[in-house]
């Protein structure tokens, strides 16, 4: 078996008016949690649909577990939670789940057993109410989300693809989802999810790929990505009001390209060729009473803004032109 769960090489998808994905290559190691990050319209969903053979790429190859993804049976090892959730509204919950499991090749008897397990685990069957016998549209939104998630995992897939899994989830269900993803990872499963919420990605992912305008901006292990970007961020706290001289230093574009914060506390991003020690010296010279001067690792959020802001939006715009 290959140690890559997903291997995408030079994939291109063109639509009538624009190119949704251009020359995208990415590798997802088996057993990892992989984040596919990007702004809306970046091509995340198109990429996921191509992995699932819902749409065919115009060029390039996609392999799952070392086999072409069109190989019969390969997609039965994949579980998919689409961004737009939906189930047959008028069907009984159990019957929907049985149907979706059978579509993935699970035998009815085995599927029935697992359905009972999962319903209990997600508190959809309790002593006084068995929601499994209810019709889908009798369920609350939260319960429907759970049913959909069960449907994704019912056939015990080796690769789980979640498209924007956190959208529309309340904090409790969001936490349950995070726990479930970590549990999948512990069991050696591969999880890939798309999101534009960087906090979730940072906490959960081993590796990420940021795409924008259908183009890969960067990818790799989260630690490597951060190291490559380098430590360009400074957390600064000063006592008292910021004197004019200090303000001038902070506004010097040769030193600081970005500044966020209030009167005493700032998050700074160093200019490309600036040195943190130079900045510190200049601040002291200007008379600042420094309480804190710390070099911090950039968050994924910052990296995302920095990289997509610099290159992504432009290509994104031309891509949609």
């Amino acid at each position: 078996m290959s140690d890559l769960a997903i291997d995408i090489r030079n994939v291109v998808k063109r639509y009538e008016e624009h190119v949704a994905v251009r020359d995208l290559s990415l590798q997802v190691p088996t057993g990892s949690v992989y984040g596919l990050l990007g702004p809306n319209g970046a091509g995340k969903t198109t990429t996921i649909r191509m992995i699932l053979d819902i749409i065919a790429p115009d060029a390039g190859t996609i392999s799952l577990f070392g086999q072409p993804h069109t190989t019969i049976g390969v997609l039965d090892r994949v579980g998919y939670l689409p961004e737009e959730r939906g189930l047959y509204k008028k069907m009984q919950v159990r019957r929907v789940l049985l149907f979706l499991a059978e579509l993935k090749g699970v035998k009815p008897a085995e599927a029935t057993r697992r359905i009972d397990e999962w319903l209990e685990r997600f508190s959809l069957t309790t002593a006084d109410k068995d929601w499994g016998d209810a019709k889908v549209d009798e369920l609350s939104r939260g319960m429907q989300q759970k049913v959909q998630f069960i449907a994704t995992l019912l056939h015990d897939p080796d690769l789980v693809i979640l498209d924007e899994p956190f959208s529309g989830l309340d904090p409790i269900n969001a936490q349950a989802l995070k726990d479930a993803v970590l549990e999948l990872k512990q069991r050696g499963k591969t999880v890939i999810f798309s999101t534009h919420v960087m906090d979730n990605a940072e906490k959960m992912c081993d590796s990420v790929c940021i795409i924008s305008g259908g183009v890969k901006v960067l990818d790799g292990r989260v630690t490597d990505v951060k190291r490559a970007v380098g430590v360009r961020h400074v957390a600064l706290a000063v006592a008292g009001d910021v004197q004019n001289g200090v303000g001038d230093v902070l506004r010097d574009r040769a030193l600081v390209t970005k500044m966020e914060g209030n009167t005493n506390y700032f998050e700074l991003e160093l200019a490309p060729n600036a040195d943190s020690q130079t900045l510190l010296r200049r601040l002291i010279d200007a008379g600042a009473s420094i309480q804190r001067f710390e070099l911090v690792q950039p968050s994924l959020h910052q990296i995302f803004l920095q990289r997509v802001g610099a290159t992504g939006i432009e290509t994104g715009m031309s891509g949609h032109g």
């Binding site: 699932l52 053979d53 819902i54 997609l75 039965d76 994949v78 998919y80 689409p82 737009e84 959730r85 939906g86 189930l87 047959y88 979706l100 579509l103 993935k104 959909q148 449907a151």
Partner: peptide, 9 residues
């Protein structure tokens, strides 16, 4: 939107 899940199978 159930079509998308079904068509993925």
């Amino acid at each position: 939107r159930v079509a998308e899940v079904v068509i993925s199978s």
